[in-house]
Simulated assay, not measured.
Amino acid sequence: MSISLSSHVLDTTLGKPAANMKLALTTPDGQVIHAKTDSDGRCNQWQDFDFQAGEYCLRFFTKDYLQTHHSDGFYPFVDVHFELTENGGHYHVPLLISPFGFSSYRGS
């Protein structure tokens, strides 16, 4: 069973997906993969990276998005650290963002 990863960013103030938000995924060996959300706020394009078990960090660059859509924001970025396990299947890391708060969880 392989491991895969996706993400989805939702703007809870507007009730809409956060499109074109820059992301950076740091892998267990320190490699950094840059990506961005699509028009539906989703991302699953990691440059054909072969996911292995280990600890990862997904950085969401929220500053530009929040300034563009809300003219203000408290968080310039949000880091979500998580662990993928061997034969873990699909992992989904959503981010719910507003100018002054955020939340994340393991989705499906």
Rank of each mutant, 00 (worst) to 15 (best):
residue 2 S to M: 09
residue 3 I to V: 11
residue 4 S to D: 10
residue 7 S to H: 02
residue 9 V to I: 15
residue 9 V to G: 00
residue 10 L to N: 15
residue 10 L to P: 05
residue 10 L to S: 15
residue 11 D to H: 05
residue 12 T to M: 11
residue 13 T to N: 09
residue 14 L to V: 06
residue 14 L to K: 13
residue 15 G to F: 02
residue 16 K to I: 14
residue 17 P to I: 01
residue 18 A to H: 04
residue 20 N to W: 10
residue 21 M to F: 06
residue 21 M to E: 00
residue 22 K to P: 04
residue 22 K to M: 11
residue 22 K to W: 09
residue 24 A to Q: 12
residue 26 T to N: 05
residue 26 T to H: 00
residue 27 T to M: 06
residue 29 D to K: 07
residue 30 G to H: 03
residue 30 G to W: 02
residue 30 G to A: 06
residue 31 Q to I: 14
residue 33 I to L: 12
residue 35 A to N: 04
residue 36 K to T: 11
residue 38 D to Q: 04
residue 38 D to N: 15
residue 39 S to R: 09
residue 39 S to G: 11
residue 41 G to A: 07
residue 42 R to I: 05
residue 42 R to G: 13
residue 42 R to C: 07
residue 42 R to S: 15
residue 45 Q to V: 13
residue 47 Q to I: 07
residue 48 D to L: 13
residue 48 D to I: 01
residue 49 F to A: 14
residue 49 F to Q: 15
residue 51 F to P: 00
residue 52 Q to A: 15
residue 53 A to C: 02
residue 54 G to M: 02
residue 55 E to I: 15
residue 58 L to P: 01
residue 58 L to W: 03
residue 59 R to P: 01
residue 59 R to V: 08
residue 59 R to Y: 03
residue 61 F to R: 08
residue 62 T to L: 04
residue 62 T to H: 01
residue 64 D to F: 05
residue 64 D to I: 08
residue 65 Y to H: 02
residue 66 L to V: 06
residue 68 T to H: 10
residue 70 H to C: 13
residue 71 S to L: 13
residue 73 G to E: 03
residue 73 G to D: 02
residue 73 G to C: 07
residue 74 F to S: 14
residue 74 F to C: 11
residue 76 P to M: 02
residue 77 F to W: 10
residue 78 V to S: 03
residue 79 D to R: 03
residue 80 V to T: 12
residue 81 H to W: 11
residue 81 H to T: 15
residue 82 F to M: 05
residue 85 T to A: 11
residue 86 E to C: 05
residue 88 G to K: 12
residue 89 G to W: 03
residue 92 H to G: 11
residue 94 P to R: 05
residue 94 P to V: 12
residue 95 L to Y: 01
residue 95 L to N: 01
residue 96 L to Y: 13
residue 97 I to S: 06
residue 99 P to H: 10
residue 100 F to S: 12
residue 101 G to W: 07
residue 102 F to T: 08
residue 102 F to P: 00
residue 103 S to V: 14
residue 103 S to G: 15
residue 103 S to Y: 13
residue 107 G to T: 05
residue 107 G to K: 06
residue 107 G to E: 10
residue 108 S to V: 06
residue 108 S to L: 10
